[in-house]
Design a protein around this nucleic acid. Structure first.
Length: 312
DNA sequence: CAAATTTGACCACT
DNA sequence: AGTGGTCAAATTTG
């Protein structure tokens, strides 16, 4: 998705919490996200309850899948800069130097996993914004003179938090990592190759972790939706907790930027691949935003809670 | 000890 | 003068 039409920085993001329209916009995103999460939970619960009931199970799966898709579409629309509320009279329109027009910008709940390897080189508090902006450049900035940079800024307190990621300059490092995003199964191997020359600690974290999260996610969904044999509460809890852990990095001794704390890589059991999915599950994965799904799963450990005692 | 991150300072731009 | 982007020394991490 090499951006084309999103070149104007959304000024509503730069001045957080200072106008009613911004608050409303943020509230809508928050509620839609919550609805999406609840739908994911409802789907899991319904499919568990209807397991083995043929037509009823299929119908419930289809309806909830469509509801989930509707939430995803709405969130996508509301998160696009075109849908941003008009700037408040006092809002500061971000000033951009001529050579710093982002070639792409996107809203995401997982700003670090874009297939490339980045190194942070700065962080700045932006006036009238709630969260700092973090500056990253390609890890191959030196070795391969890659000029690609990106800026990450949290822009909502929604669950999961939404981040605005702006990309500047094209990658000239020719890393194969970008392709790994489209073929997660090959991510590890491809990065092993691309990082061979670099050999620096931590450069593979992002994509490897994403691959791992995806495996955990698929495994968890297979357990929940498919009623798989090894569906034991403890297994599911471990998987869900791992996903939640990866999604929410632990605090650091000296970290001030909650945007940037990279999650620890959870060691994989070698050769432990998730079971093959049926069409239903793949369909669900297809329509559900990955980051939102992990967010939804992160409250899986509250499944034991009585109805109405939701953790948010 | 090497590499990554943090953070105050500096610089360019409006 | 104010703001945002980058630099680089200090600090942290594994």
């Amino acid at each position: 998705m090499d951006g084309g039409g999103m070149h104007q920085a959304p000024s509503w993001l730069a001045a957080s919490g200072s106008s009613a329209s911004e608050d409303e916009h943020e509230a809508v995103i928050r509620e839609l996200t919550r609805g999406h999460q609840l739908t994911a939970r409802l789907r899991a619960e319904a499919l568990r309850a209807l397991r083995g009931q043929g037509q009823a199970e299929a119908t419930a799966a289809f309806i909830l899948q469509e509801v989930s898709r509707a939430f995803t579409v709405c969130l996508s629309i509301m998160s696009s800069p075109a849908r941003a509320p008009p700037p408040a009279p006092l809002a500061v329109v971000p000033r951009r130097r001529d050579d710093s027009i982002p070639r792409e910008q996107k809203m995401t709940s997982s700003p670090h996993y874009d297939g490339y390897q980045w190194r942070k080189y700065g962080q700045k508090r932006i006036t009238r914004t709630q969260f700092p902006r973090c500056y990253y450049r390609c890890s191959f900035h030196r070795e391969r003179s890659c000029r690609a940079t990106k800026q990450v800024q949290q822009c909502s307190n929604a669950q999961p938090p939404q981040y605005l990621v702006m990309y500047f300059n094209e990658h000239t490092c020719d890393t194969a990592a970008a392709a790994a995003v489209e073929a997660p199964g090959a991510a590890t191997a491809m990065l092993d190759m691309s990082s061979a020359g670099a050999g620096r600690r931590g450069e593979r974290r992002g994509v490897v972790q994403e691959d791992h999260e995806l495996q955990l996610l698929v495994s968890s969904l297979t357990c929940v939706l498919g009623g798989h044999q090894h569906h034991s509460p403890s297994d599911a809890a471990v998987a869900v907790n791992n996903v939640a852990l990866a999604q929410e990095p632990p605090p650091r001794a000296r970290g001030t930027c909650e945007l940037d704390a990279p999650a620890p890589v959870v060691d994989d059991a070698p050769g432990e691949m998730p079971p093959r999915l049926n069409v239903d599950v793949l369909g669900a994965l297809d329509v559900m935003d990955y980051g939102d799904v992990t967010g939804a799963l992160s409250f899986g450990d509250s499944y034991g809670l009585p109805d109405g005692d939701l953790p948010f």
